[in-house]
């Protein structure tokens, strides 16, 4: 199935049939494949696998006996946890974890992805045109 005029890239046979109708509308941008393909039905499988590894993991519960046993044990544990979680060190760990993710998002690989580095990729003759680009209004794409 050709997705764009003069575009030699394809998606797998029947690939789009596997998608929900509404999703199809939103994913017409898959002309972006440019020669890259995926196994048949991959995205449906992918969705299931991701949900299996994330949300559905949280739903796993033991049988009734296990829950009763762990339920009574958990009452005692809850008191212990309550006092443990109130300690400043635990709060600090949570804050550090949050900060570590913030750093990851904001500064990890993208930290040095700034104008100066991109400019450093340019040859001398092109710096001038770069400065011209910078002086243009932002909406001139």
């Amino acid at each position: 199935m050709k997705t764009r005029k003069n575009n030699p890239f394809k998606v797998p046979k029947g690939y789009f049939d596997t998608l929900e109708e509404t999703l199809l509308e939103k994913t017409k941008t898959n002309y972006n494949a440019y020669g890259f393909q995926t196994p048949k039905g991959y995205f449906n499988h992918l969705e299931k696998e991701i949900l299996q590894k994330t949300t559905r993991n949280n739903k796993k519960k033991g049988n009734i006996i296990t829950r009763v046993i762990f339920g009574s044990a958990s009452i005692a544990a809850a008191f212990l946890l309550f006092f443990t979680l109130q300690s400043p060190s635990e709060t600090l760990v949570a804050e550090n974890k949050e900060q570590a993710f913030e750093d990851y998002i904001e500064t990890y690989y993208l930290e040095d992805f700034d104008s100066f580095e991109l400019l450093s990729l340019l040859e001398e003759g092109e710096i001038e045109s770069t400065l011209t680009y910078n002086s243009k209004p932002r909406n001139e794409n």
Binding site: E106, L110, F113, D114, S115, L118, L119, L121, L122, E123, E126, S129, T130, L131, Y133, N134, S135, K136, R138, N141
Partner: peptide
């Protein structure tokens, strides 16, 4: 997305 100036992106792309 990349938190980079539009000017630098344009220059980078054209390069």
């Amino acid at each position: 997305i990349l938190d980079t100036s539009v000017g630098a992106l344009k220059a980078s792309y054209h390069h």
